Amino acid sequence: MIYIKEAILHIFDLNSNEPIFSFAGLDLTEKFTFDYLHAMIEKVEGSDNMKTGILSEDNSLVQSFNAIQDDFTETTKTLTEKFFSITKLNPEIPPADLLFVYFTLDEVPCLGLFKLNYSDSITHYISYEEETLTNQLIVNRSILPNARQAIQEGMVLQLSNLEYHVIEKKHLITELAEKMFYFTELFLEDKPQPSLKENISMIKKAVQKTSKAFNDEEFQVLADTKDALVHSMTEENVIDNKVIAETLYGNNQEKKEKFFEEIKELGYVDKAPAEVAVVGPKYTKQKFRLDNGIEISIPIELYRDPEVVEFINNPDGTTSVIIKNIEKIKNLF
């Protein structure tokens, strides 16, 4: 359960390239504000892009994070200064406001930091010229994301143990002439573990490379991989690479060794927490695109039922797909 105690918004002034600090918190009695803060927290906690890390005690921000509960407003100013000192030197990083939220999550004290990137929107304004009222259009370049929009960068930090959950994007850092995760690498000065989405991507790449090395039919192995992933996430709430390897390769030690070699090289983290609900509805179906343009979507629980669907390898090297026991067909036009 989320209980919000304080929240404050600091603005990045596009004209001066400097922050405009707030000296008082947001009004939490406003329902739309309260709902907005809840939405920001949930967008980080419920994202398959979320990465996890733990700050060391000698991290340069620990002193500030420890002061949050005692002096929320002044501490957020200090954090904002460091954050904007990075973004203002790197024009590829989108300008934004910083929203800080001090709250408890299941009675654990937490700090939320959310980067609200600006977007452009057209609005009206009223001008008076020579006593003539004229309605005009103007571009507002500081529109914040609404509660339904995904945010690209944000963090929830548990103040008790300095464990953080973060979503972020790579941006070009001018001084280094390369893209990097500046939120964690430059602001937090830390490197989190890969996200659930990144871990799944690594598994997929390792399977593809293993399939290529042994000339296996890639579409079939990837379908089996998705099946194994869903099973591991549903039953164990983790992605266990040993379970994946056992499901795909059985007693073939050579393929297993190749698979383990590939995922290690890619940086995969074994048995990282994973929930199938987080990765979304695409993991409820097996989807195939055939080279003749036909696309097939099969519920994952029916994919392995030979009474429903069958893939047949033909002598000429082609593959046939048989859909069986159809009683009724509905057009989804």
Rank of each mutant, 00 (worst) to 15 (best):
F183T: 01
H171V: 01
Q152I: 10
Y164D: 00
M155L: 02
I173G: 01
L159G: 02
Q152R: 10
E178C: 15
V139S: 05
F187P: 00
Y125G: 09
H124E: 11
E163Y: 05
L186R: 10
K191S: 13
E178P: 08
P145F: 03
Y128E: 12
Y125P: 12
Y125E: 14
N140R: 06
N146Q: 07
K169T: 05
E131V: 03
K191E: 05
E178I: 12
E189G: 04
S127Q: 15
K170I: 03
R141Y: 12
D120K: 04
L172K: 13
L162R: 07
V156C: 08
I151Y: 05
Q152T: 10
T174N: 10
R141G: 13
N135F: 09
L188C: 01
I143V: 07
L159A: 01
K179S: 07
Y182K: 04
R148I: 11
Q149F: 05
R141W: 09
A147C: 12
R148N: 09
R148A: 14
E153A: 05
K191C: 05
K179I: 06
E153M: 11
E175Y: 11
L162Q: 03
T174C: 03
I138Y: 13
E131C: 07
K170D: 08
S127L: 11
Y182F: 13
Q149W: 04
H165K: 12
A150D: 15
S142F: 00
L162C: 06
M155W: 02
I167P: 00
L144E: 01
L186N: 08
S121G: 15
Y128C: 11
T184V: 02
I143Q: 13
F181K: 03
E168R: 07
F187W: 09
L176R: 10
P145T: 02
E178D: 12
P145V: 05
T174M: 04
N135E: 14
Q149K: 11
F181A: 01
I151F: 03
D190Y: 01
L157P: 10
L144D: 07
S127A: 15
Q158E: 12
Y164K: 00
Q136I: 14
L144N: 03
E168K: 04
A150V: 15
F187H: 01
V156A: 15
L172R: 09
Y164V: 00
V156I: 11
A150I: 13
H165S: 05
Q158M: 06
E178R: 11
D120Q: 14
L137N: 15
K191W: 09
E189S: 14
M180Y: 02
R148Y: 12
I126L: 14
P145R: 03
L162P: 02
L159V: 03
Q149E: 11
H165Q: 12
V166S: 00
I173Q: 01
E185F: 03
T132V: 06
L188T: 01
S119N: 04
A150L: 08
Y182A: 07
I138P: 09
F181D: 08
Q152M: 12
K179L: 13
N161G: 05
A150C: 09
I151K: 04
H165V: 06
L133P: 06
T132D: 04
Y125L: 14
E163L: 05
L157K: 05
F181G: 04
I167C: 01
E129P: 08
E153Q: 10
R141V: 08
S127I: 15
Q136H: 14
I173D: 02
N140Y: 03
I173A: 02
I138C: 12
E130H: 13
F183L: 11
T123H: 08
E163P: 02
T123I: 14
